[in-house]
Amino acid sequence: MKTKILSLALGTAALAFGATAASAATLDDVKNKGFIQCGVSTGVPGFAFTDDSGDWQGFDPAFCRAMAAAVFGDPKAVKFTPTTGKTRFTALASGEVDVLARNTTRTFSRDADLKFTFAAPNYYDGQGFMVRKSIGVDSATALDGATICIQTGTTTELNLADFFRANNMKYEPVPIETNAEAQEKYLANACDVYTTDASGLAATRAAFEAPAEHIILPEIISKEPLAPLVRHGDEQWADIMSWTLYALITAEEKGITAANADEMAASSSDPETKRLLGSEDELGVKLGLDKAWALNAIKAGGNYGEIFAKYIGKDTPVALERGLNALYKEGGLMYSPPFN
């Protein structure tokens, strides 16, 4: 609540006072202050959460750490700002955060109208529904008249309205602000259904006391390509974001891990691996970074596959399959342009 009001106020004030005018060279600003300010969610198990010592962990913070390592060589040179579905865009537009890694769906209007630049999706998702097994519903088309908890200020709100209109059904929306609030309402049975991205549902369900009593309905009613994003108008900074993600994906493809990255940099004979890790050519310099940028990014938390497995993979409580998010060679959609 407080952060919401603060960032709304900041955003508006920034427009009025121009105090934090988003300048063209975000990289210079970031280097001057010595860290990357990264917007994450207020807490979704697996994707963004604080550990016992209060540090942010998860799939999204790991990407920010990789970026910090690419820029500074130090994965710790990053500070996190928790944002809600509603405050995130204001926070980014006003310059309060430098990059937003917060399971955000890339859409036309966010790209063209809100003026943000997205990286390639780092998680292909879709909106789903979670219900109690005990209510005996096995399809989203049987949800006529249900009370549905929904995070406000998200694409899910629009998808939900469209889905129910298309199927000529009625529902009672209960708008809520954060995932934690939704969980509380859903568990108190104040809503029959919780809807958000299927990955978020799996993550939330994993935190329940009795996950087996809840099912995620088979219908996926939307495409939700989740991607990190930055402000329009700074190509260099957008490139750093995009290619850091590509570096992590390529690393998985080439079998480069956090453990063997140094060794691969020294001994690999594959030209693209050598270019990526900076032992041949100087790709990083063209981004305004050190030539070891990708090496550092990979060493920060591992390649894309390692990050996925560590925080949301099938051995974690969240237990998500790779599915669409597997490498293209393995039937998924994760495909990086070549490092040439």
Binding site: L8, G11, T12, L15, G85, K86, F89, T90, A93, S109, R110, D113, L114, K115, T152, G153, E157, L158, P175
Partner: peptide, 9 residues
């Protein structure tokens, strides 16, 4: 919601 969907803060 309108503010968020349209970005017209």
């Amino acid at each position: 919601i309108t503010l968020n969907q349209t970005g017209k803060e």
